[in-house]
Amino acid sequence: MYVEWRWEWSFEILPQMLWATLNTFLAAGVGYAIAAIVGILFMLGQRTSYKIINIPTREIVEFIRSTPLLVQLFFVYFVAPQFGLTLSAWVCAMITIGLHYGTYLSEVYRGALEGVSKTQWEACRALNFSTSYNYRKIILPQAFPIAIPGMGNYLVGIFKDTPLLATIGVAELFFTANSIGAYTYRYLEPYTMVGVIFLVISLPTAFGIRRLEAAVNKAQGKVNV
């Protein structure tokens, strides 16, 4: 073994890492909030019956979904200034994460709406409910529980993708680990600590989501495999 783990030093850098973790949380939270809204827009765009809107939306969603987030980050970061839009790394990152995960969330929403049984829609029509009443009182309350597991998974997904933001200079956890490493030339502790911090946060979250999913399935009378 060429290097040894230095405990005192890792405790020395721990506060710095934990501060950076807050930035990671911020990035994941804001990114998720944007993605949740963008997802609704994409979902609506795909569901309208106007071909002029739904075909391009579908193609855009398909394109964003099948290209890497990393390349998209660089695209936005470098191309936006050429069109006179000088955005900070944070803004770029939030836009890109929002768009990228918005496409995924639109699929979750779509699946949830389609998961509501068709007879519910028919019953609403038969009872002559208005469209907004129908959505507010009948469909959405039933669709929401179906969407919970998918939405939760992408929350963890965004959280785990935030280290990519370090590549364009967003000062989150991984960025901090990199700069500590570059400054002290010790990479073992920072990188390992990043991994541990991620594990400590995402495992309980994923576990909670699984519990939620099981509860939702149970409430809906589905048997859990």
């Binding site: 785990k160 993708d161 935030t162 280290p163 990519l164 991984f174 990188y191 390992t192 990043v194 991994g195 991620f198 594990l199 995402s202 495992l203 994923a206």
Partner: peptide
């Protein structure tokens, strides 16, 4: 492996 990021695993 599912709890940590791919990029961190790769760098490690």
């Amino acid at each position: 492996y599912r709890g940590t990021s791919l990029i961190i695993q790769m760098f490690w």
